[in-house]
Amino acid sequence: MPSDQQARAQASAITPGKRYADDGPAPVDQVRALFGGHRLSPAQRRIAQYITDHLTEAAFLSITDLAERVGVSQPSVTRFATSLGLSGFPALREALQPIALSAVAGTPDTTREQDRRNELQAAVDAEIDNLESLRRVFADTDQLLDLGRELARSVPLTILGLRISVSLAEYFAYAARRIHPDVRLVSRGGSVANDALLQSREAGGTWVLAFAMPRHAKETLAAVRAARGTGLRVALITDLTLGPLVEEADVAFTAGTGSRLVFDSYAAPGVLSAAILQAMADADPERTQLRLEKYEQAAEQHDFFLEY
């Protein structure tokens, strides 16, 4: 863990953003540099956002007052400080106060307001970076196309997503059912997941596609291990390049998540999911076309959708 001095030094790192007369980084960029590079929980991100938005006030508040303003407990503020590599709340204030004083001295109110508005744009910029990284991954499509063929052949095909990853798993399963004859969604952990995975294997399934987005759940790791235990192979979509989840997977694809807002956003994992669906569709074009045509006929017959 870095020392307090090292963590405070991050606040002086040169990062993209508006420059001051001394060619140093703007105070809001110094604060973001201090908070950046750390995996923060949603509650901790609320603290970080409050400090960023109210820097000149927050840097001089007591731990009691800051916790009250954000709407969290005092231990939550302490854990936030230690998650940044600092020894505690006093060290956090010590790191913030020089930045706050420079903001008071050099930043007009209109500029500080613009910084707050641009936080949403910064979140979009971070997702653009994630998509650029994914674009580089797609430069070599062999592994993705191979996975598409394997998932298309697995009947049934099991899609696993627990807790925050449920939404991605549901999207994938919903779309995959349009082109695959037997798709099974597992969105509950524990013995329910174990039963579903065992049934899928006994029914002839060979693959599980698992989603593991932060914060990574222990029950996801347990379910992946259970799948491997039944003889199923595991393909993993996650934001990790290393760790126990990746080690348990037969194939792993990494897609970064946006972490600038209170809750993560999933632009890159969503695009990666759509690309794997495309690879599945291309792996068996005749089956894909037949199933899509049948679905369109059913949609028209039962009047599923609005007409514009």
Rank of each mutant, 00 (worst) to 15 (best):
L151C: 09
S167R: 15
F253K: 03
L96A: 05
T107S: 07
L162T: 01
G258M: 11
P42I: 07
P108V: 08
N118Y: 14
A268W: 02
R93F: 02
L34T: 05
E132M: 11
D282R: 10
S154N: 06
L84T: 01
V186S: 01
R69N: 08
M213K: 06
V155L: 10
T56C: 06
D125L: 15
S73R: 08
S200P: 01
A13S: 03
P181V: 08
G36W: 05
S187D: 11
R112F: 07
T158D: 02
A203D: 13
T56W: 02
E119G: 13
G88R: 04
E150Q: 10
D284H: 01
P90M: 14
E286P: 02
T52K: 07
V262I: 15
L147K: 06
A169V: 09
L34I: 14
R291W: 05
R69M: 08
P42K: 07
V70I: 09
R228Q: 07
I128C: 14
Q301C: 13
R136I: 14
L221H: 00
T15P: 11
D264K: 00
A299Y: 06
D109W: 04
I51Q: 00
Q114F: 09
R225E: 00
Q297E: 15
P90I: 11
A222L: 03
T238F: 04
H38M: 10
A139D: 15
G24W: 02
E132K: 09
R135A: 11
S76E: 13
I164H: 08
A283D: 01
R260P: 00
P2H: 09
I14S: 09
L162R: 00
A196I: 14
A9K: 09
D146K: 12
S133M: 12
A100Q: 00
Q301H: 12
V137I: 15
F253I: 10
D4R: 03
V155T: 13
A100L: 00
R79A: 11
L144A: 04
A298M: 12
G256D: 11
A252S: 10
E247S: 05
V251M: 11
L160K: 04
G270K: 15
M213Q: 14
L209F: 12
A21N: 02
R46A: 04
T206P: 00
Q297H: 10
